[in-house]
Design a protein around this nucleic acid. Structure first.
Length: 248
DNA sequence: AACCCAGACAACCGCCCCTCC
DNA sequence: CGGAGGGGCGGTTGTCTGGGT
């Protein structure tokens, strides 16, 4: 269609967001919502393009985002969902509350993929990334998650999700001091959550989806998506991974 | 102590799809 | 019905950090 770039590059800031920009964005969205991303930066007085604002909000500033290391259960779910859905990160993210597509994509590319590859190559070692680091604290130039709530009303839900450490579904938010040391072993995720989450992927592909996720794997109509999903589920079962599901 | 390298992740880019006019 | 605009998504890149030498 030959569309113009999403934003004028001239005069617009790029790169890491500052705490001030974050505050401005959050405050503006709190007050006015984000009905129009394109107009938002102007209205908010930000020298950013709308897409950049949207990305920042979706991936980092949204109050319901869960930060911190992925639990083993989450990683397994990602692997299983990826086996069924492919690189449909947003769809996968929809099944993992509090996780963003970008985050899942990153986790996949950084270690889950490697873990799978090492398994397939016959190594069988579950830990393909021996040097895996704990999630780093936000860089100085960007706002830390703990700073954001200064301008965000803290609801019980939000207080869970805005701590810089991982916050599980049924655990108390860890203190900042040990946030990075939280491991999957310390999580006690409600089994019902995983049963629900994974059941959605198998039983009713549409039930747990958000409106935008009602497409089939090939982006076709929902009716054909069921057939497609059946195909993937069958494939998945043949691969033997369904054993994990049946245990849940 | 300094340097190098690989990992982690935030952010950008370009394309596609949907909606509105 | 077709075009334009906006949002969303997936791929990729850039930068920072921690670990190893």
């Amino acid at each position: 269609m030959g569309r113009a770039p999403c934003c004028e590059k001239m005069g617009l800031k790029r790169g890491p967001w500052t705490a001030e920009e974050d505050r401005t964005l959050v405050a503006h969205i709190e007050q006015h919502g984000h009905s129009n991303w394109r107009a938002l930066p102007k209205q908010a007085g930000l020298l950013r393009c709308g897409k950049s604002c949207r990305l920042r909000w979706i991936n980092y500033l949204r109050p319901d985002i869960k930060r911190g290391n992925f639990t083993r259960e989450e990683e397994d779910a990602i692997i299983q969902l990826h086996a069924m859905l492919g690189n449909r990160w947003s769809t996968i993210a929809a099944r993992l509350p509090g996780r963003t597509d970008n985050e899942i994509k990153n986790v996949w590319h950084t270690h889950l993929k490697k873990r799978l590859e090492s398994k397939q190559s016959g190594g069988g070692q579950a830990q393909a990334a021996p040097k895996r680091r704990a999630k780093k604290a936000p860089v100085a130039v960007t706002v830390s998650r703990t700073e954001v709530p200064t301008s965000v009303p803290v609801s019980p839900e939000q207080s869970l999700s805005t701590s810089s450490g991982a916050s599980g579904y049924s655990m108390e938010a860890p203190s900042l001091e040990n946030a990075d040391s939280v491991t999957s072993e310390e999580f006690q995720i409600d089994d019902s959550f995983w049963a629900e989450t994974l059941a959605m992927t198998v039983d009713s592909p549409r039930s747990g989806m958000e409106s935008g996720d009602c497409l089939g794997v090939d982006g076709s109509s929902p009716s054909s998506s069921n057939a497609d999903m059946d195909f993937w589920v069958k494939l998945f079962m043949q691969a033997g991974d369904m054993q994990n599901l049946s245990q849940i």
